[in-house]
Design a protein around this nucleic acid. Sequence first.
DNA 1: GTGGTTCGATACGGCGATGTATCCGATACA
DNA 2: TGTATCGGATACATCGCCGTATCGAACCAC
Lengths: 215, 215
Amino acid sequence: MTDAKMPTRSRENTRQRLLDAAMAVFAEVGLDAASVETICERAGFTRGAFYSNFASKDELFLELAARVASERVAAVQSRVGGLAAAGPDGFDESEISAILEQVLDVGADDRMGVLLMSEIRIRALRDPDVARAFLEQDAEMKRNVAQIITDISALKGIEFRVDAAQAAHLMLTVWETAAVRAVIQGVADESRGGEAALRAATGAHLAEVAHLILC
Amino acid sequence: MTDAKMPTRSRENTRQRLLDAAMAVFAEVGLDAASVETICERAGFTRGAFYSNFASKDELFLELAARVASERVAAVQSRVGGLAAAGPDGFDESEISAILEQVLDVGADDRMGVLLMSEIRIRALRDPDVARAFLEQDAEMKRNVAQIITDISALKGIEFRVDAAQAAHLMLTVWETAAVRAVIQGVADESRGGEAALRAATGAHLAEVAHLILC
DNA sequence: GTGGTTCGATACGGCGATGTATCCGATACA
DNA sequence: TGTATCGGATACATCGCCGTATCGAACCAC
């Protein structure tokens, strides 16, 4: 029963390093093209360490996907908390989009995040387990964003043209697609528009939607 | 004269069969997981035929992506043409979404179409060539949809809350995301909701957007 | 210190996919 | 009818990667 096991501190450490390395490699070349070998050498291990910690690449991916998803949700939730601070003063449509932009830019503002989510998404198109995880995470995100919208609505006494759930759905959709589009744009003209361009593009689209849902 | 040099009729035929088979296999297992061998046996050939017609799997994919893209655009364009027939009678927000739904359901209404476009999209996130092709096709689609919206606006004397380009962008975004989501939904509960569910889900979201962009 | 356990490295066998080089049959042409 | 060409099949050599089995070293309790 002592077998509850302190994972030797080094074991858990190894797992995390492997997961981090896998995240980077998956983002770079995609799940299928990423060999176990590559992941290991990126993490500074050999395949022995890998198979001592994971049964297969798929298992690792599942765990990684869960980690990424929960991190995204957690990050958004934490930002939602610190939102009430935003005073109930002046209000215009740019404000709501700014708030959401700030809330959402966790997990979608960097190239790697977009690539990883795309990898998870395409996997969800074929694997039931991943599909369920994906939908659940998405629903959670939607709930959080809807909460924000509701809060704003209550705080400022504003009515929107659609209910919070629909608005949240729409904004998440637009945000996600815009982020992907921006990365593709950067790849097309490898002039490395990078972060700035990405943020600008997604922000603009969000503002557009905010305008639409206002009364 | 129809054929400058008849490529033996059999050669071009072989190419097409290989492309068709590849399309199916790519949709099923993804680009990376699809082996040349699998594609060939699906098409009823051996690898000899493949390497006689294509230099590599990547080359085939590029050609396939171009074909799919141009087919999508062509299909939408042809539907746009037959649109003026829709009489300028009664009008409500469900009509505009119905029209767009009808126009768009080419290329996104079937599981395979969604899977293929997702494959192209994820490839566009890493390969500059694919990225450019993707963006170009997307812009073309957007132009066509914007045209439809403009036509409707003129025909019925309606003003929208955003300009046609923005509206088109939004509707394409929502449509595409909804289609993907529906497929994932079907994978999650493999009760095979299938086509009907997919169409219903995407239709509902489109209607929602139509409501928003109306004055 | 000593023995046991644990974790990662090394070594091995094997499979599957790739790309090329060669062969064979059918069609086109003289 | 004989011959050249073309398209696809077959055969071959190779490589990368996988998963396991084994080894060795560090860490633990006593």
